[in-house]
Design a binder for these strands. Structure first.
Lengths: 229, 229
DNA sequence: CGGCGGCTTGATCGGTCTCAAGTACGGTGG
DNA sequence: CCACCGTACTTGAGACCGATCAAGCCGCCG
């Protein structure tokens, strides 16, 4: 379901060559590399991009929209590991299988390149190898930060989430969230009701305002920061 | 406090050379590389090995004993990110600073090598670069697994912890835990009382027995596995 | 024997979940 | 344009799990 005709036709050798001949300034970022060699692909809202334990043949970058990666426990509980926003890279694995499932949160377009091409480039160029490492290291830092969230109170988790999103969406005081309350709940390890209630509390405390359910204005950042750590 | 006299005298160029001339079979693992080039260093129980945000000048491997890495929130709550047992590598960072603090849980000896040597070797040899990536990727998988733990009930967390330790300590049915109840609690995001109570419950349910507080015998693994996922 | 640190156990409190309505919004068809 | 519907979200009441506060216990070492 992933591989479109023109992806199949990609020629590893030629493309590996493209990596080798790239000027360093472009090779500086996997993002740049992805942009040059990748194929664009659209996904509908809630469409699966890949499933846990499926072969990890491609590396992805969000062009527009948003993506969630998650795991599901046997009893149905879902843990969202991360959200990916435009510019973010996801699906990069050391092993041959994806460790999480990935879905489009809204209608989304991604670019993707064959993982084998990236690995081949890393063999030849140490700066590409370092990029792979640095992306995984960044994911690790985010995962550790996420772990820290999960030991906090509901208010602290929600406040931290809002601040994280404000930073990553680059919005000044007004957020336009792509994800549902259920997504937020599954990211923060709370229930949808607790997320909703906590947002209402924060609004009552004048820390935020909620002109629409997905639109959140940060009114008092210092109050949120106080909750954050 | 880290740098002993003979570490200061280490010569990067010579040691980088040693990496280059190593037979591939040894270079296959960072562990092997560490063993050859590393200096041994002992730490007392509860001694700090490095602190969060300190320069990450060395990479460590546990020889004997056990190590915890952790973060502390401003209000004093502590989150243990990981436990490291003999054979485990820790303290490897992409950036120049440690993202966690590290302490010896019991009297511990580690071997360490300068991070700069490892990085230099990775520049020259793509298989070393891949090793760095693979260690960070392993840490990432563990962190994701840890995140999954934190959304579960107390029983499930404790059961998962016991199974993880049984696997990593390689003990058949009997565990000799190096860490205190407080360490376990801070790893699982619970209180010491809840950990203690939950262990008692599991003993009452005949899933484990507790001949001594740090010694735990797994009596019914399938019962623990049922709790685990 | 006394004291101390680590652990267990008990009683109560409180935050989050659960179950259950009720509300707002966007889309679709009349 | 409105009526209707379904989905997402909010709000309320009560139950439950784990935290908190408080003793007591155990093993170790002086």
């Amino acid at each position: 379901m992933l591989a479109s005709a023109n992806l199949q036709e990609a020629r590893p050798r030629a493309d590996a060559g493209r990596f080798r001949s790239m000027p360093p300034s472009i090779c500086q970022s996997l993002l740049g590399a992805l942009e040059l060699t990748g194929a664009k692909m659209p996904f509908d809202r809630n469409a699966e991009i890949y499933g846990e334990n499926e072969p990890a043949d491609y590396v992805y970058k969000v062009v527009s929209g948003a993506v969630r990666t998650y795991k599901v426990l046997s009893d149905g509980r879902r843990q969202i590991d991360a959200f990916f926003l435009p510019g973010d890279i996801f699906g990069l694995e050391l092993g041959d299988e994806h460790s999480c499932s990935a879905e489009a949160i809204t209608d989304t377009t991604v670019v993707l390149v064959k993982r084998s091409l990236v690995l081949a480039a890393a063999e030849k160029q140490s700066n590409v190898a370092r990029l792979l490492w640095s992306h995984t290291a960044r994911d690790l830092r985010r995962a550790q930060h996420h772990t820290l969230l999960l030991i906090k109170s509901a208010q602290e988790r929600v406040a931290a989430f809002l601040l994280e999103m404000a930073e990553r969406l680059g919005a000044g005081g007004a957020l336009e969230l792509p994800m549902s309350r259920q997504d937020i709940a599954d990211y923060l390890g709370l229930t949808i009701e607790t997320v909703s209630r906590t947002l209402s509390q924060l609004e009552g405390a004048a820390a935020i305002s909620l002109p629409a359910s997905r639109r959140i204005v940060l009114r008092d950042r210092s109050a949120l920061n106080r909750l954050n750590d």
